[in-house]
Design a protein around this nucleic acid. Sequence first.
DNA 1: CCGAATATGTCAATATGACTGACATAAATG
DNA 2: CATTTATGTCAGTCATATTGACATATTCGG
Lengths: 191, 191
Amino acid sequence: MPEPKVELRESPGRNLIEPKPVGLAGTNLLFLREEEIRMAQDLLFFAYRDFTNAADVILDELGLGRAHHRALHFIGRNPGITVSDLLGILRITKQSLARVLSVLMEQGYVAQAPGRADRRQRLLSLTSAGQALERRLFERQKERLSAAYREAGAAAVDGFRRVMRAIMDDTARAYIDNTEPANRVPRGRPA
Amino acid sequence: MPEPKVELRESPGRNLIEPKPVGLAGTNLLFLREEEIRMAQDLLFFAYRDFTNAADVILDELGLGRAHHRALHFIGRNPGITVSDLLGILRITKQSLARVLSVLMEQGYVAQAPGRADRRQRLLSLTSAGQALERRLFERQKERLSAAYREAGAAAVDGFRRVMRAIMDDTARAYIDNTEPANRVPRGRPA
DNA sequence: CCGAATATGTCAATATGACTGACATAAATG
DNA sequence: CATTTATGTCAGTCATATTGACATATTCGG
């Protein structure tokens, strides 16, 4: 019985707990707004869960975890990134990153080079093996994401991006905006 | 302690690693498609990170973790849910859930009742303390999410929902579709 | 040039949340 | 009655994160 059953067979207390949409317009709107937000919580949980799952088979084969994947992703996307910038993106402690990075370097996926301007820095980049691995992981997630994009359509994708960007905090927004491709379609807001 | 810096001060290897959008139309489109997907990876990471962060302060005060929050959320949303249905939603093992649930029950946030139709089942629901706690946690995430919805606009929210729904797997989609408000009819269970 | 600040690395100890696999009990079901 | 199901539990392990202290090399301001 491998398939997890998600459908609920009975939910006796449901109607006792949820505020019923009564005739009063204000109350009903409030209810809908709250339900909208709770739905967003569900969406974020499930979408993120299945998005991250997509690469797990490959990671398991190699004895790596999601933390390694995240590091590979952001180093691959920002070749020559400093350790402290990577820490700022991942929002984990130096020690947590150190363990992940040391594995990736030992296994030849990530290389360090001293910064030319500031020789204290260790600029991180993917080796060709690291690029290859990151690509394998990427392809798995791409399958799921591009299928979703195809299914939802271009207009929905634009809305998706806007909402996701608005959920994250300012520093992450700044990162996202700087990482966009140069030939991007202009956003709704003024620069 | 300075603000974590996310902006990248130098990225020497960037242009060496990213495939350049050459004149060839096909290659350029391929590049854009790939960049679109990598952007989606970024969006999911940052949005999920900051969405989950929102409730952490309260959880820390109480010595609870995100696993407890997830359980509270899905029990609150599905009062009377069975243990196995909750396991199917969270996709964790019985043992992982057991530890979380036993804490929540010891601390009076969650109650069990034997199923009426099937007395093997332990139907889970929030106590009033559990409802109160879930609401506190909810309000924090609501601040962030409703601000994002407001900023992005109704059309974007619709697109967001479509894409998120398309990212998740079939069982999660079925759950989402059954949980939608208003057009929710009594669950298809034969009494 | 010197002292302070910065970038990075490292140590030890700890916490959380997840896992596997085995086993136990009660109840439903054919 | 035998089997299956729903749930609980035990023991051990792993992955990922944390804090806080300390070390080294380098940069930078006065």
